[in-house]
Design a protein around this nucleic acid. Sequence first.
DNA 1: CCCCAGTAGTCCAGATTTCAACATCTTAGG
DNA 2: CCTAAGATGTTGAAATCTGGACTACTGGGG
Lengths: 158, 158
Amino acid sequence: MESETDTRWLTAEEQCAWRTHLEVNRLLTHQLERDLQPFGLTMNDYEILVNLSEAEGRRLRMSDLAAATLQSKSRLSHQITRMENAGLVRRENCESDRRGLFAVLTDQGLETMRKVAPHHVASVRRHFLGLLSPESLHSLSSALTPIADHLRTHRTRP
Amino acid sequence: MESETDTRWLTAEEQCAWRTHLEVNRLLTHQLERDLQPFGLTMNDYEILVNLSEAEGRRLRMSDLAAATLQSKSRLSHQITRMENAGLVRRENCESDRRGLFAVLTDQGLETMRKVAPHHVASVRRHFLGLLSPESLHSLSSALTPIADHLRTHRTRP
DNA sequence: CCCCAGTAGTCCAGATTTCAACATCTTAGG
DNA sequence: CCTAAGATGTTGAAATCTGGACTACTGGGG
């Protein structure tokens, strides 16, 4: 174990990389959020729509959806309630396990998806992917993948 | 302009890179937040402590602090109120501009900083920097820096 | 000097997130 | 069969975040 008096502080390069990473995260999130706003959606909403639209039967169990989007059950429950009120999804009982519920993408939800997705993709390109050369993209991917694996493994709570 | 029918969708590689980036962000934020929790601090608190401790006279104008931490004035105001109640910072009037206020790091705030920083640095190493080779770190940096520049430029609101 | 547009920060009200408690249902063990 | 532990979601209250209205002040132009 390392005592407080001999901490291995960050080098200039490490500090720069770390702060840049934090900054990109925050600014990028704000920007994407803003680009989604005219459609009345948040990134959270959008992510849920994506997950449901890609799922078998356009539906997912609440638990699975919570796991997929890395949210707490409570938060997802509130979120789905809001999206239900907006007509994007509906809840449906699960026959095989009567504790369970499905979140189901409505036709209107799918339609919204179709309308918004191109704009969102364009936004991701404009502010992120488009600024990376193919090599940069690749090295970014290979740098982040092990980190994602590590974090996924060590994760305890949502 | 591009019509909805000929959107340039993401390639498999782009999609993978993008989703990994999102996932790392979220998991990493959760993890760092969790590692800070035993000390009663959030990442937000910590970032403010860092900014103040590095500033001239351990103090910054509210506006400057808001800009540095990419928060809205409103949010920062609430945040500082909370940290003031916790004894980490205090507000101080600005002589030269009587509209203005400084957020000032208290001795207790500095002491907290000293105690927590080593653990936070260790956490950043354990979950992020430590998983990157020097080359990965460098390519990550060079990939993200232009993006940060772009976003900083195009930013309209906090 | 006075006025006014602009700046600094706060505050309120509404939306979202978190946390813990709760109700319901499933499943494994006896 | 019966029960207790665990799983699935929901709920309500408190904390936090957002956006805009508001107060107080500054600085420049008549």
